[in-house]
């Protein structure tokens, strides 16, 4: 059982090495992470040169705090970072389905549990390591150019945000397993992420439980080292949802595939 899982996982691994996912995703995240502190640092220079200010105008913008810059970095990750991750992994199962290659794996007595969890762990491993190196880049440049943020705040905020990424990528795998169209996977997961963060921004009281709250909790951690109200509720809920989505996906996939074979 364990051996089969290892084989499936290794197949995923060699594939993502071969198509350079292990290289370009971390590089993109480092670039994203480094950009925010860099642009904050050079902001005044950039405005002076390209902003079309009248001659002699004096610009007095207070430099942002380190926490602000890190919060901004997470904002970049939530937009461009998520987009890139979802586009990279939307075809995880759906792509194999449309090519029919998943049948080559699944005609053998492979358990769907192993098939899907191997993919899940693999996706999370790449996404989270990309996030970690990107975030490390952001923290390093922020310390270098702006100011240091207390290590505890950085680590706890980063960890909370990592859980939010885990949630989204679980959703990507789920949709990818259940739908054939990669467009549905992309729009479904990005739409859910957007909806959850917007709702938790405008109605935080109703959305206390929502995983979408996690990113604002992580930003709070940067500023104060403390989370907002309802942190534990959303943390617990996210873990419950991740487990629930995975269980449901394996169950539904099982049902669908078995039905497909006997038809």
């Amino acid at each position: 059982m364990m051996k089969q899982w290892g084989v499936l996982f290794k197949k995923e691994w060699t594939e993502s090495v071969r198509n350079f996912k292990w290289l370009w995703l971390p590089v993109v995240f480092i670039l994203l992470g480094v950009m925010q502190p860099l642009t904050s640092y050079y902001f005044a220079d950039i405005i002076e040169n390209f902003g079309g200010l009248p001659e002699g105008a004096v610009l007095d913008i207070p430099p942002p705090s380190g926490a602000e810059v890190l919060a901004g970095t997470l904002g970049q990750f939530s937009q461009i970072g998520f987009l890139v991750l979802v586009l990279a992994f939307m075809g995880t199962v759906a792509g194999e389905k449309s090519h029919g290659t998943h049948l080559m794996v699944l005609v053998k007595p492979v358990s769907y549990f192993n098939y899907l969890t191997a993919k899940w762990v693999h996706i999370l491993l790449i996404s989270l390591s990309s996030f970690v190196v990107g975030f490390a880049g952001a923290v390093y440049y922020t310390a270098l150019l702006i100011e240091t943020v207390p290590v505890n705040n950085v680590l706890s905020g980063g960890a909370v945000y990592a859980l939010w990424i885990t949630f989204i990528m679980t959703l990507v795998l789920c949709l990818s397993a259940l739908f054939r169209s990669t467009a549905i996977v992309a729009f479904g997961s990005l739409g859910t992420a957007l909806l959850m963060s917007v709702l938790s921004m405008y109605t935080p009281d109703l959305m206390k439980w929502s995983p979408g709250m996690l990113s604002s909790h992580s930003q709070m951690l940067f500023y104060s080292g403390d989370t907002g109200d309802g942190f534990w509720v959303s943390l617990a809920m996210t873990i419950v949802l991740i487990t629930g989505i995975m269980t449901l996906t394996i169950y539904m996939f099982n049902k669908k595939e078995v039905a497909g074979h006997t038809e």
């Binding site: 290289l23 590089v27 480092i30 670039l31 480094v34 050079y42 220079d45 002076e48 150019l145």
Partner: peptide, 26 residues
């Protein structure tokens, strides 16, 4: 001023350029 500011901090900008180049070459 901007080019000057960038030149002063060459060590800060260089990694970004290198990463961009890696991405392009790969």
């Amino acid at each position: 001023e901007l080019t000057q500011a960038l030149q002063e901090n060459w060590a800060i900008i260089a990694p970004v350029l290198i990463l961009q180049a890696i991405l392009m070459v790969v």
